[in-house]
C-alpha cells in the first residue's frame, strides 16, 4: 500500500463508479458498504453487491489504495446473522478493515476474525479516552472515528491519551446529534437510522407548494418551509426549522456543511491519522470534486507549501452552500 502523504484521505463510495472515481482522484482509502441494512447509508440504488465489492477492492489494491467496509449499524434482535455474514464477507473479500459500532458485532468480529482490522465507527460515539480504551482493550480496535462533537484542542488531548489511530471528519454533512444514538427520524417515520441504516428515508419525504413557498415534510411532520430564493435543504429532522418560544428557527443546526480544509495543519498537529470525507449518498460528481481538492491541498501541505484558499467549487458542494468548522472551533456548542 502507498503510504499516505501528510494525512490519510478516507473517501466515500456509494457505488462502484464512485469507488473508481475516488481512487483516480487521489483517495488513499475508500470506504463503502454492502447493499443492505448493515451500513448507515442504506439508500435505494446505493452500495455494493459481493461481486462489485470484490472488483472494487481489486481496483483499489491494484493502485496501492485501501478499502474499508462499513458494517456500522446495529442489528435488531433476531437479525444478527446478516451482520455476521457481512463481517465474514468483508474478511473473505480481502477488505483492509471493517468499520463497526455494535458491541455484539465487534465481539463477533474480534473472536471470529482476529486478523481483520477493526475500526470503531462514529456510530459508536466514543468521545473520551475511557470509552475508546474500552473498545481497544476488549475488541482490539486499531482506529477510532471520532464523533463530530470535539474541538481541535480536545482532539489533541484525546490523541495523547489513547493508543489507537484517530480518524476525524473533514468535509460533508454535519449531524448535530451524537451519532448512533439519535432516534428523531424513527420517531417520525418508524425506520431507524441505528438499525435500518437510513435517516429521513426518501419514501417518507415529500415536497408541497403552498403559495410561493415550498413545504418539506418527513412523514406527517413538516420539517421546513422555504420562501422563494431561500436555500433549500433535505428534510432531515436535525436540519429542520422548528418553533420555540413563538419563533421559527433552525433550532439544531442551520443547513451548513462541514469544511475543515482551512484547519488541516491543526488537525495534523493534534496527532490525527486520517481525514474522513462524508457523503456515500452523494455520487460521483461530488466524490471527484471533493477528493481532487483535498488531494491537492494535502500534497501541498506535505511539500511544506501553504494550503491554497478554499475553492468555490468545494463550497458549492456543501449543504445549503454554506460551510462551518462545526465543533472544531469553540462557540459551536
Amino acid at each position: 500500500m502507498n503510504p499516505p502523504r501528510y494525512l490519510e484521505l478516507v473517501c466515500p463510495a456509494g457505488t462502484p463508479a464512485a469507488l473508481s472515481t475516488a481512487v483516480d482522484a487521489g483517495a488513499d482509502t475508500v470506504y463503502c458498504g454492502f447493499r443492505d441494512a448493515t451500513n448507515a447509508r442504506n439508500y435505494p440504488g446505493l452500495n455494493f453487491d459481493p461481486i462489485e465489492m470484490r472488483e472494487g477492492i481489486a481496483y483499489a489494491h491494484a493502485r496501492g489504495r485501501r478499502v474499508l467496509i462499513a458494517v456500522n449499524t446495529f442489528p435488531r434482535a433476531g437479525e444478527t446473522a446478516l451482520w455476521h455474514d457481512a463481517v465474514d464477507r468483508a474478511a473473505a473479500l480481502g477488505a483492509d478493515a471493517v468499520i463497526l459500532a455494535d458491541l455484539g458485532v465487534l465481539d463477533y468480529a474480534a473472536r471470529r476474525h482476529p486478523g481483520l482490522r477493526r475500526h470503531l465507527s462514529v456510530q459508536a460515539a466514543a468521545a473520551n479516552p475511557l470509552a475508546i480504551n474500552f473498545y481497544h482493550r476488549r475488541f482490539g480496535i486499531s482506529r477510532v472515528v471520532l464523533p463530530r462533537v470535539l474541538a481541535v484542542s480536545e482532539v489533541a488531548a484525546l490523541v495523547g491519551a489513547i493508543s489507537v489511530e484517530t480518524e476525524v471528519f473533514a468535509f460533508g454533512s454535519l449531524g448535530t446529534m451524537v451519532e448512533g444514538r439519535c432516534y428523531l427520524s424513527s420517531y417520525i417515520t418508524g425506520r431507524s437510522p441505528s438499525c435500518d441504516g437510513v435517516c429521513a428515508p426518501a419514501e417518507h419525504v415529500s415536497y408541497r407548494e403552498e403559495g410561493d413557498d415550498l413545504l418539506a415534510s418527513l412523514g406527517d411532520a413538516v420539517m421546513n418551509r422555504f420562501a422563494p430564493g431561500e436555500p433549500r435543504s433535505y428534510p432531515t429532522p436535525c436540519k429542520g426549522r422548528f418553533v420555540t418560544l413563538g419563533t421559527p428557527s433552525y433550532l439544531f443546526e442551520e443547513p451548513v456543511g462541514l469544511n475543515a480544509t482551512a484547519i488541516l495543519p491543526e488537525l495534523k498537529a493534534a496527532g490525527v491519522t486520517a481525514l474522513k470525507i462524508e457523503g456515500r449518498q452523494r455520487g460521483r460528481a461530488y466524490v471527484a470534486e471533493v477528493v481532487r481538492t483535498f488531494r491537492t491541498i494535502l500534497d501541498q501541505l506535505a511539500d511544506g507549501r501553504p494550503a491554497p484558499p478554499v475553492s468555490a467549487s468545494l463550497l458549492a458542494l456543501t449543504e445549503g452552500g454554506q460551510q462551518t468548522f462545526g465543533a472544531y472551533r469553540p462557540g459551536w456548542r
Binding site: 446495529f74 442489528p75 433476531g78 437479525e79 444478527t80 459500532a101 455494535d102 455484539g104 441505528s194
Partner: peptide, 9 residues
C-alpha cells in the same frame, strides 16, 4: 445501544 442478543450477552 442494546438492540440485539449479541450485545445483551
Amino acid at each position: 445501544n442494546l438492540f440485539n442478543e449479541g450485545t445483551l450477552d
